[in-house]
């Protein structure tokens, strides 16, 4: 825990600290933020500042209660590994499946449940492309932008989707339906360009196919 006595005050760290507090206020999560002042900082300072951020974050945010269903699924994963910490990623995926994304409150709840610190778990959460630390749309479009799809003209398809939905990579439509994200090679290169939506791979994409796909979905609604 953060204790004032251990903290060697200097102007640089003080500035960091102010920034950290501001970041907490706007609910930016601690570890991603901390990365920006990692470089060049003495290790001791870094540890203290980070601990301070986490402590502050704990004071301002409370872990939400995991649902019975989430706990049940996480418990099952725990039976498959000799170490509780090993199910961190699975637990985050379970929470994301139920909540749509991993909020700070969810992250802290999972960390508590697994006996890990929140920053350790956030280190895992922010490492993986498919753990969403911000809200996403109901449907996440994972659009392959790797080399074979690029050769087969995926940029044109991506522009078509962007135009149709009015969103670029990393954005969500105003109605909360779609989020568009780039994804590395989906392993379907002989049928490029491809994308993954709703757990289904869509292949040999053309602008016409995209139009048809979204028209069908609009009809179903």
């Amino acid at each position: 825990m953060w204790t004032g006595e251990d903290y060697e005050y200097d102007a640089e760290c003080s500035a960091m600290w102010e920034l950290a507090l501001q970041a907490m206020g706007s609910s930016t999560h601690a570890c991603r933020f901390s990365a920006s002042f990692d470089r060049g900082q003495a290790r001791s300072h870094r540890v203290f500042v980070m601990t301070a951020i986490i402590a502050t974050s704990a004071a301002r945010l409370a872990a939400r209660a995991l649902t019975a269903e989430e706990k049940h699924e996480i418990d099952h994963e725990m039976t498959l590994y000799p170490d509780k910490k090993a199910v961190g990623l699975e637990a985050l995926k379970i929470v994301q499946k139920h909540q749509g994304w991993v909020s700070d409150e969810s992250l802290m709840a999972v960390a508590d449940y697994l006996g890990m610190s929140a920053h350790e778990l956030d280190g895992v959460a922010t490492f993986f492309n498919l753990i969403f630390r911000r809200p996403v749309g109901k449907n996440v479009i994972l659009f392959c932008d790797s080399v074979s799809c690029w050769i087969m003209g995926c940029d044109r398809i991506k522009d078509h989707i962007s135009k149709r939905l009015g969103i670029d990579y990393g954005q969500t439509t105003a109605d909360g339906e779609y989020t568009l994200l780039p994804v590395p090679c989906l392993g379907d290169c002989d049928r490029a360009p491809v994308m993954l939506m709703d757990g289904e791979q869509h292949r040999n994409l053309t602008p016409e196919k995209i139009d048809q796909l979204f028209a069908e979905r609009a009809q179903k609604k």
């Binding site: 961190g88 490492f127 993986f128 492309n129 994804v183």
Partner: peptide, 19 residues
């Protein structure tokens, strides 16, 4: 997993598997 090319490196994969 949840998407990261480096997990194909066998020791990175082991770290990922350990959580």
């Amino acid at each position: 997993s949840a998407g990261r090319y480096i997990c194909g490196e066998e020791t990175a994969l082991l770290n990922a598997l350990e959580g």
